[in-house]
């Protein structure tokens, strides 16, 4: 009988063999350094370029599920025009996904599987295998993952790696994960001592991670209920330049635009879906000229409500993972933790 919870270990020295083997059959992507303290998920064929200790990548792994630009339809124009809905996908293993980003992918899975379904997203998701990687300490001061309950593994992966020094503890969550382990022939069952090491690492994390904003998570929706007309939005809105960086780097932002592009023959073309941002001025404008979110403060407020309030009613979860990317990417220095702290202070 298969045991429900399976733990293996992989010696650190064997990580390279594992990645090399994986990359023979799949595209493997993992965090690599981009310099200046920045990291990005990029294709690897060995473990040489993989950075195991990294702060959240510039873009979250959502780019593999929901690319910045994707063709959803190809067409020919003129009389007798024809159109075909298409999906472009690639068998991919994402290695080294932090728990905050696993949480983000779980949020997007829910959005795109809600009817009417998005089969482009779902088709791509089916071709992706996810290997998580645990953070044993804070990545930096901008994270708020304890507040958002995403600093511990909570499903959403096939395999999950925890760095125990000279070896990785590997939790198997799916049959696809088990198959990777078996095919690699590098993993060994975890010993009781290694299990104890995992538990003590988790205990140390529980002592280290504290709510990054002084509020109980379950009180957040009620605070937002009271904050629609808060001066906090005006204040942050005056700083905000409406660049849309925060939405691009957000693991749970999924607003998009759709536009046609003609091919060079001018007889055929593509309908392309691309990332859009509710922070840019034309986002809620209609053809007649009316703009339903014309001020920057309204647009900024809208984004916060989508993370901390609206999603609770619709999907029963926060759409903030506490990864801190919006703060790091903000050109105007708007800090999510500060904004939340001000709202909390005002509401209490």
């Amino acid at each position: 009988m298969a045991t429900h919870t399976r733990y293996y270990t992989l010696r650190k020295d064997d990580l390279n063999s594992f990645i090399v083997k994986l990359s023979r059959d799949h595209k493997v992507v993992a965090p690599v350094s981009k310099g200046y303290g920045n990291f990005a998920f990029a294709e690897v064929t060995s473990s040489n370029d993989i950075v195991l200790k990294y702060i959240p990548t510039i873009l979250p792994p959502k780019k593999y599920f929901f690319p910045q630009r994707e063709t959803i339809l190809t067409f020919s124009t003129g009389r007798g025009e024809n159109a075909e809905a298409i999906l472009e996908h690639e068998d991919t293993v994402i290695f080294g996904v932090h728990t905050c980003d696993l949480n983000g992918i779980q949020c997007l899975n829910i959005v795109f599987s809600e009817r009417p379904r998005d089969y482009n997203y779902l088709g791509r998701k089916d071709k992706i295998t996810i290997i998580g990687l645990e953070c044993s300490e804070y990545c930096d001061k901008d994270a708020s993952c304890n507040l958002m309950n995403s600093n511990f593994p909570n499903g959403g992966y096939d395999l999950f790696f925890t760095d125990l020094g000279d070896a990785f503890m590997v939790h198997v969550n799916t049959q696809a994960g088990e198959d990777l382990v078996e095919n690699a022939n590098l993993f060994k069952p975890a010993s009781p001592e290694q299990m104890a090491a995992l538990y003590s690492l988790r205990d140390a994390k529980r002592a280290l991670f504290k709510n990054e904003v002084a509020v109980d998570r379950k009180d957040i929706p009620a605070i937002f209920d009271k904050s629609e007309n808060s001066a906090v939005w005006q204040k942050a809105g005056e700083k905000c330049v409406g660049c849309g960086n925060c939405t691009n780097v957000c693991p749970t932002c999924y607003c998009f635009d759709i536009a046609d592009t003609m091919n060079l023959d001018l007889k055929s073309g593509r309908r392309v879906r691309s990332w859009d941002s509710c922070q840019v001025e034309p986002f809620a404008r209609v053809a007649g000229g009316e703009n339903f979110r014309s001020g920057q403060a309204e647009r900024l407020r809208h984004r916060y409500y989508r993370k901390f309030r609206y999603s609770l009613g619709k999907y029963y979860r926060f759409f903030c993972t506490g990864c801190g990317r919006c703060t790091r990417a903000c050109m105007a220095g708007i800090r999510l933790k500060e904004t939340l702290a001000e709202l909390v202070k005002e509401a209490l």
Binding site: E81, A83, E84, A85, I86, E88, Y119
Partner: peptide, 15 residues
């Protein structure tokens, strides 16, 4: 990259 027709796509249009 594999490209395939998506027959159940909600992006399909009727003529």
């Amino acid at each position: 990259m594999i490209k395939e027709e998506l027959v159940n796509s909600n992006w399909r249009v009727r003529k």
